[in-house]
């Protein structure tokens, strides 16, 4: 078991090295364009040269990477050109919004995926299964930004239930806070629940053919109890894997929703910095979201093993 964790930790370490290296070299190994692109099309040759100097583009690349990495490890992501402050501070201040959005959207997508997945698996091929499955298939073709606009149109312009944009921090009251995040979270959920529902449905169909489900039925237990208490947990391993991948993706993918709904999260910080050509901030955001993505995936990988006592046993026995 310890050997397995060590192996996974080693892998995590290498991926982190790769990820930081790619982030770093992306700027530093690309042709002279980089400085030009950062400076923007209206810049003079002098400005470009200054940026090149600022970035230290003339020193040895490996030395620069190590110096930079050393600073990053200490939490120093540099200083923002535009915001006139530390990049790390800006990221930390935006983080709660993104995390809150993420948690809420994950909850909402599970609230959609689990009941529908279970109902469809209970009567596969039935009218309700066909209806839900084809709706889900159709929803896979709706990009998240289209979903966001559609929901804004329905819920804020047409029905006037929820605000279309703007964010109320928790300090403004938990109710206002959640209300301002509900539509963005629902936008993400409406797109992300589909793969969750599909894997749960297919795994559950397999589980429902197991003997212990027959045994549970022979005990005279009601169908909803059997579905949720006996069948759900053994059917949810793939669901959790996909969910983990999604959480990772959302860390990097929340920028679209944050932009549509004008939420002050990490994603919007990144987009804003790109438009503002705030080099240090862009690098910091990319590095942060990438590392968050890698670590979330690692955590899910570990969690996965602990959820199923059979896998836990394999790991303890050392067969894993």
């Amino acid at each position: 078991m310890i050997k397995l964790i060590a192996k996974k930790l080693l892998r995590l370490f290498f991926i982190l090295i790769a990820v930081t290296a790619i982030t770093f070299f992306m700027v530093n190994l690309l042709p002279g364009d980089a400085a030009y692109n950062i400076a923007g099309p209206d810049s003079t040759a002098e400005e470009i040269e200054n940026i090149r100097k600022d970035l230290g583009l003339n020193e040895n690349v490996v030395v620069r990477y190590l110096n930079w990495l050393f600073k990053v490890v200490k939490g120093d992501l540099g200083e923002s050109l535009l915001a006139r402050g530390l990049v790390s501070r800006a990221i930390v201040s935006r983080l709660p919004v993104t995390i809150e959005l993420l948690v809420l959207s994950v909850l909402l997508s599970l609230m959609l995926a689990i009941p529908f997945g279970v109902i469809c698996a209970y009567k596969p091929g039935s009218l309700i299964d066909k209806a839900v499955s084809s709706t889900a298939f159709g929803m896979m073709a709706v990009p998240v930004f289209v979903m966001g606009i559609a929901l804004i149109y329905i819920f804020s312009i047409h029905l006037r239930w929820l605000p279309a944009t703007g964010f109320s921090p928790i300090s403004a009251g938990i109710f206002a806070n959640i209300k301002s995040l509900l539509l963005p979270a629902f936008t993400i959920a409406m797109v992300e629940w589909v793969p969750l529902m599909r894997v749960l449905r297919s795994d559950m169909i397999t589980t429902l053919q197991e003997n212990y489900i027959l045994m549970a039925r022979s005990k005279g237990l009601p169908a909803p109890y059997i579905l949720f208490r006996h069948a759900l947990q053994p059917s949810s391993l793939t669901l959790i894997t996909i969910l983990g991948l999604q959480i990772g993706h959302l860390f990097g993918g929340s920028m679209i929703v944050e932009t549509i709904f004008a939420l002050p999260g990490i994603g919007r910080l990144l987009i804003g910095s790109i438009f503002g050509r705030d080099y240090a901030m862009v690098q910091g955001c990319i590095l942060f979201t990438t590392i968050a993505y890698v670590i979330v995936n690692f955590a899910v990988d570990m969690l996965y093993a602990f959820l199923d006592p059979r896998i836990r046993k394999q790991m303890v026995d050392g067969h894993g």
Binding site: N211, K219, G220
Partner: peptide
Amino acid sequence: TEKELNKIRGQGAAMIFQDPLSSLNPVM
């Protein structure tokens, strides 16, 4: 009805199956 059947299944008549490994829920 399914509900009345469940009453019989649980209390009136019980069943045991061939393979005791697969007939017990592995995660419960």
